[in-house]
Amino acid sequence: MYNMDSEEINHLLELARIELSSQEKEKISRDLEKILDYVRQLQEVDTSGVEPMTGGTIIENVYREDEVNEQRQCSKDKLKNSAFDTKGDYFKIPPVF
C-alpha cells in the first residue's frame, strides 16, 4: 500500500494551488493512495525501447498567420464581465505579496 503523508499532500496542494481543510486533506490522501495503487499495475508492462506516445494526433507543426480574425474576436465587455475585478480596460487584482 502506498502511504501519502501530510508533508507530501501539503506539497502537492501547494503546487496545485488548492486550499483544503485538514479533514479534506485526510480524505484526498486516502483516495490518492487507492488510485496510485491501482495505476501502479502499469509497472508490470515491459516498455523497454518503446517510444512514448506524446499526444493523440498524427499531425505535426501546424502553422497559421498570427492575424486578428475579427469574426472570431470576443467582445471586450464580455471579457471584462468575467474578471475578478477591473479598472478601466484592465483586470485588477489584489497585491501579489
Binding site: 496545485a16 494551488r17 488548492i18 486550499e19 483544503l20 479534506e24 484526498i28 487584482i93 489584489p94 501579489v96
Partner: peptide, 16 residues
C-alpha cells in the same frame, strides 16, 4: 493577496 485568490477560488470552486 493574489495567492489567496488562487487557493480560495480553487479550494472552494472545485469539487472533490
Amino acid at each position: 493577496n493574489l495567492r489567496d485568490i488562487y487557493f480560495k477560488s480553487r479550494g472552494k470552486g472545485f469539487g472533490a
